[in-house]
Design a protein around this nucleic acid. Sequence first.
DNA 1: ACCGATGATGTTAGCGATAACACCCGTCAG
DNA 2: CTGACGGGTGTTATCGCTAACATCATCGGT
Lengths: 337, 337
Amino acid sequence: MDQKITRDPAMTDVARLAGVSHQTVSRVLNDHPNVREQTRLRVRAAIKELGYRPNRAARALVTGKTQLIGVVAQNSTLYGPASLLSAFEEAAGEAGFAVSVGRVKVLDRDSIAAAVERHRDQRVAGIVVIAPNSSAADALADVPADLPLVTVDGDPERPTPLVTVDQGAGAFEATAHLLQAGHATVWHVSGPPDWFDAAGRVAGWRQALETYHAEVPPVVAADWSAAAGYKAGQMLARMPEVTAVFASNDHLALGVLRAMHERGRRVPHDVSVVGFDDVPEAAYFIPPLTTVRPDFAAVARETLGLLLEQVSEGESIRPRRTIAPVLVQRESVAPPA
Amino acid sequence: MDQKITRDPAMTDVARLAGVSHQTVSRVLNDHPNVREQTRLRVRAAIKELGYRPNRAARALVTGKTQLIGVVAQNSTLYGPASLLSAFEEAAGEAGFAVSVGRVKVLDRDSIAAAVERHRDQRVAGIVVIAPNSSAADALADVPADLPLVTVDGDPERPTPLVTVDQGAGAFEATAHLLQAGHATVWHVSGPPDWFDAAGRVAGWRQALETYHAEVPPVVAADWSAAAGYKAGQMLARMPEVTAVFASNDHLALGVLRAMHERGRRVPHDVSVVGFDDVPEAAYFIPPLTTVRPDFAAVARETLGLLLEQVSEGESIRPRRTIAPVLVQRESVAPPA
DNA sequence: ACCGATGATGTTAGCGATAACACCCGTCAG
DNA sequence: CTGACGGGTGTTATCGCTAACATCATCGGT
């Protein structure tokens, strides 16, 4: 005959074993001050002996709060968002929060609203939305204000709590680096125009050109793919006056490299190229790519901090945080021939 | 003066508005049969009017079950695991389950055990572990058997429920493709030896060589990075007898391409290269990479299905599932010179 | 020696849902 | 005509926890 499957031990079981009331067990668990040291030890021993594990559902029911953070992100494997998400999950885990991820196929209003609703259903303590483009940012207007919410990579123009990489500063540095190498100007292959990251990089690029009194060539608009970078590169490769290209991310840069290669324009001898993101394999492109590296771990930390401030205090004194990226120099930049 | 912040509507509020008992509301919510159609409509209307949202914590407390699935994954942005995770989150979301991700810095026993514990604390309905190497697989021995658990990319030798890409078949196909192009043999740059994916690919490669009665050269062991591929490639590029290389993933292949390029060995004219994963930018390597594409969405679907079978039925009739990948032909393979 | 403050603990009342059972009322077979 | 049956509904207990209050020593100040 099977042994009767007993239910998981509850607080009362611990209390009985320790010879105290369940409330005292609760106090020990929540680090209340007024518990005698000896009692505390007895309770802890009982907890250990029974393998007791507090029931979060019960706690959530009575307190009305959970230790859950919802994240809304697009279902993509783009390096930036994926790194960010991963870093955030780790940071939150270390802070004792569980992270529930709601993936969304497209970042439109309906999908985001639905994902946020699902998270509200779960009574999350707060929500992080990775909202890197304007449709996503628009959708946030629908989110009720009673729920702590932090936007990552969102619209810098909006007054919502936001953490983002300083795209402008990174792009400025990349462009300035090329100009300082002696190039007359720098062409730019941009990401999708409705992405804030892309827009910010365009702005930084333009500002650098203006600062150095260089001519501002037209932006070559693309998306984030190597395919688009290749196409843009094919065009740029045919133009002899193009000697320096700043691509809005490393995969675009990869496409540009390939197009230049096919056209017989050597990098960096004939054309210099700089990317953005510092994907792990960027150091092994042909040639190794000079690029801009954002600190995703820092973004994740700031995001978590900002969210928790809102959770505990209702709002934050410093609701906008910007993380400056650094330029990583490799071998894709040289003075013009 | 502030309006009093009223709490979220509960079932009793809906009941009062609809003029029924809270239990009837519960019945409507759970689609119980014995509710008059008219009552059902009245209740639904009340739910809508109040914006009522069932409290999952309360439900979990009384039923002892949650709609939460825990995932344990490494904190990395490797393309395979990241794609898998993303696909799984989407699949689970569509099935009405929330996914709580526990990231782990390294896949060792302690970290995994801790992550699993955190998920148990949350009373997840089941756990998915992305356990692509042996240390991770070992750690699973510690996981109590009372919790539904599915391993993804885990040890094919273990009798646990498992879903994995058919590494052997993919590697076989890649190798056979090179041999059929006329190469006398195929060299292999492998991933980390303790990863099952890598081991499976080595096995498939070897099997193909044996099937075609080709000589089996020594395995060039690396990790998953472009850096390691570059190093391996530098060695292989110096060996004139090397005309075909199967790299265990696309980033390794990228490193090999670069090494070949630097050494003046043209791909595919002098050396053919095949990768594995079909990362989005593989089509824009120089030259576009022939590679093996796993279907991560299928893996995710099978994983979810397997887990839910265990949750509802205790076990599964078909606890091991394998997804066959396909060869994607591009321009990095040609007959030997 | 008395008394209020303080510390350590116990008791009771919910949180918001589901489960189990009770109840009412038609319908239908005997 | 009556009693068994079952659909539709309400009532009550319960899940495991925390909040709020109650209780009872102990202790220092007058």
